[in-house]
Design a protein around this nucleic acid. Structure first.
Length: 640
RNA sequence: GGCGAUGUAGCUCAGCUGGUUAGAGCACACGGCUCAUAUCCGUGUUGUCCGGGGUUCAAGUCCCUGCAUCGCCA
């Protein structure tokens, strides 16, 4: 059976963050799991690189779109290996092969009559860069920009999505697992109760050139989703390569809830029009909140996976993310909870179980796998639990219930720790007449560890390899063949290695061992801590900030928000920055002012508006007061 | 405004089609062990299961209503 798992291709207007890492870790874990179950499995990720947001970001960064996407895409590609993530393919929408196939598909769909040219007249807001509906207007104005939108008509190409609405509804109803978890399936179905509009799939080159030209009209480029979604099939060589035949329609897509509609509605109808079977399943997960608030650039709580790996290691991060989130629901991230998992689950429970077991084998059994005798009730109970864990683990993994799969594993770890106390091998070792009993107990422990490592291979590949190395196992994991009791051969050499997981203190540093040799001071101050900033920063840290003077040239309230203003700044290039000052400043009174901004803050989306930087303001008892310079200075001047 | 989700111990959450004294992990307290990464094991404390009303012999579990948070849609 073949299996094809994908992450979304990530939009390169921002660097990789925790959410990207989660999707990708899930995909990697599932792919590894399927392989361990002897399935023919493929895993693809990549980057989405077209569209006006990219042009905007590139302009902001002062480079060409091509240079810009190369840089950010490279960051994504480089982010995964440190997390032990190994995609089979990393696709970019700027790849030549992708572009050609997208064009060929556009032509096919066009020839079929599912793409038509139409004039769209509507109210266009320059600030929003989109058409607004009548209902959105407040007193005839754009609610975001307090300006009346311009009535313009633009000609564009449309995909006849509405034509496939009934088919899609039937398909979703007939295939309960098409969209999971169920809540998202219901959401899609309820959305489909309303008539579907056709999808605008083009932009005139007068407005946007950074895209794939329509093959039948080079005055237009295709816009966003039509280009992006197709990656899932261009990445396996559609239309005619072997890979496509091998992995389609065995495709399962992982997405976060924000891109549900394109994947649950646009994509299946596109496939239907192209004449390709729909993908098999769509798996929708929730968001990671950071300390109970949304991850956001302005709050400054964006978590970078790379920093977590530096501190905790790939396996801990993978374990934490999979254990802590119920797939489909939102979850909360904090360094405290990560640290708690590291210490209690990994170091104390698993790590210590492994360590104490191997040490006893070393001391009481001459560093060799002992021979198991008759199993007592206690032995049998642990053995049964360990074997049952394999089945439970498989079932939960197949259902994307990673937290439950891991709970099942940890239940056995707890049982094994209890087993040691019940059987007290150190007592048995005192009396030579207990030799066979002792051997059986130690063997039971080693077998349990072997089965634990087998389950963990998909989740924590590095740890599983270490465990297997100590146990003298050199074959790759295979859940079907190796999930049985009693496969360890007596007489094999057991090696006690280093601790699997260090206990860490609150700063996320390794606790120094008492007796061990010299602590590795090495890079004591490697970079700044990810979230923790309790102390002083170095000058180097300070120079990372790009502080600049910028002039406010426009300011508008953001609808539905009491706090946010959308500012247009000259720094000296124009950029949009969202500031939480609406309660203290009216839009009019600040136009023309010079303020100080953080120019290299990662862009963040607030109430639908992307903010490229942050305006500094003092927070006193009087409220928020904007920063400024004491005399006018040219826009873009550095502040240091 | 419409539709929907959620609200259970200090924290994170389990509790399927209603059924005996409401559970787990973390944290906390005490006790035990010594193989182990100051680890492990045992015992224990805490809950108006969001509020109010209703159905039922019986409701955290069903119905109505209110409140709070969140999501989708408009």
């Amino acid at each position: 059976m073949s299996f094809y798992i994908t992450t979304p291709i990530f939009y390169v207007n921002a660097k990789p963050h925790l959410g990207h890492a989660y999707s990708t870790i899930v995909a990697d874990t599932i792919c590894r799991f399927k392989r361990i179950c002897a399935e023919d499995s493929r895993f693809q990720t990549g980057t989405d690189e077209h569209g006006d947001k990219i042009v905007e970001a590139a302009t902001g960064a002062g480079v060409s779109p091509k240079e810009y996407v190369d840089r950010i895409s490279g960051m994504f590609r480089a982010a995964w290996p440190p997390l032990s993530i190994e995609p089979d393919n990393f696709i970019r929408t700027t790849d030549q092969e992708h572009i050609q196939v997208v064009q060929s598909i556009l032509q096919d769909v066009y020839d079929k009559g599912d793409i038509y040219f139409s004039e769209y007249s509507g109210l266009y807001c320059n600030g929003c860069e989109r058409f607004l509906t009548e209902k959105e207007l407040v007193d005839g104005n754009c609610p975001d920009h307090q300006k009346p939108p311009a009535p313009i008509s633009e000609q564009n190409y449309f995909f006849r999505m509405s034509k496939y609405q009934d088919w899609l509804i039937d398909h979703i109803k007939n295939n309960p697992e098409f969209i999971t978890p169920e809540r998202y399936r219901n959401e899609v179905l309820s959305f489909l109760k309303e008539p579907l509009e056709d999808l605008c799939i083009s932009r005139p080159t007068s407005r946007l050139t950074w895209g794939i030209p329509l093959p039948f009209d080079t005055n237009f480029v295709t816009y966003v989703w039509f280009d992006a979604l197709i990656n899932y099939i261009t990445g396996i060589g559609y239309p005619d390569k072997d890979l496509f035949a091998r992995y389609w329609p065995a495709a399962e897509h992982i997405i976060a809830k924000d891109i549900l509609k394109p994947h649950a509605i646009f994509w299946p109808t596109m496939l239907q029009s192209i004449g390709i079977a729909p993908y098999k399943r769509l798996h929708v997960h929730g968001y990671w909140n950071i300390n109970e608030t949304k991850m956001s650039k302005t709050i400054g709580n964006v978590v970078r996976p790379g920093e977590l790996v530096d501190e905790f290691g790939a396996d801990t991060v993978r374990y934490f993310l999979l254990r802590e989130m119920s797939f489909g629901l939102d979850a909360s991230f904090s360094t405290e909870s990560l640290l708690a998992r590291q210490n209690s689950d990994l170091a104390n429970d698993l790590g210590n179980l492994f360590s104490r077991s191997l040490t006893m084998v070393a001391r009481f059994a001459g560093n060799q796998t002992p021979k198991q005798g008759n199993l007592s009730e206690s032995d049998q109970e642990l053995a049964d639990a360990a074997v049952a864990m394999i089945e439970e683990f498989k079932a939960q993994m197949n259902g994307f219930a990673f937290h439950k799969a891991l709970q099942a594993v940890w239940a056995v770890i707890g049982r094994a720790n209890r087993y040691i106390v019940e059987n007290a091998p150190w007592e048995l070792a005192k009396d030579p007449t207990n030799a066979e009993r002792l051997a059986t107990v130690l063997y039971t422990l080693l077998e349990t560890l072997r089965l634990l490592a087998l389950c963990l291979a998909a989740v924590m590949p590095g740890t599983a390899v270490k465990m297997n190395a100590s146990l003298g196992i050199d074959t790759g994991p295979d859940l079907l063949q190796q999930g049985r009791w009693g496969l360890l051969e007596p007489g094999c050499a057991i090696t006690v290695g280093e601790a699997l997981f260090p206990r860490m203190d609150k700063k996320g540093k390794k606790k120094e061992k008492k007796k061990q040799d010299k602590p590795q001071e090495g890079k004591k101050q490697k970079k700044s801590e990810s979230v923790d900033t309790d102390g002083m920063i170095s000058f180097d840290d300070f120079t990372k900030l790009d502080l600049r003077v910028a002039e406010i040239v426009a300011a508008e309230k953001i609808k539905k928000s009491d706090r946010l203003l959308k500012l247009t700044l000259k720094a000296p290039e124009e950029r949009t920055v969202v500031a939480g000052i609406a309660e203290h400043y009216g839009p009019e009174e600040i136009i023309g002012k010079q303020v100080i901004i953080v120019a290299n803050l990662k862009p963040a989306k607030l109430m639908g508006v992307t903010s490229h930087g942050m305006v500094l303001a003092a927070k006193g008892e009087e409220g928020l007061v904007l920063s400024s310079v004491s005399r006018p200075v040219s826009n873009g001047s550095k502040v240091s």
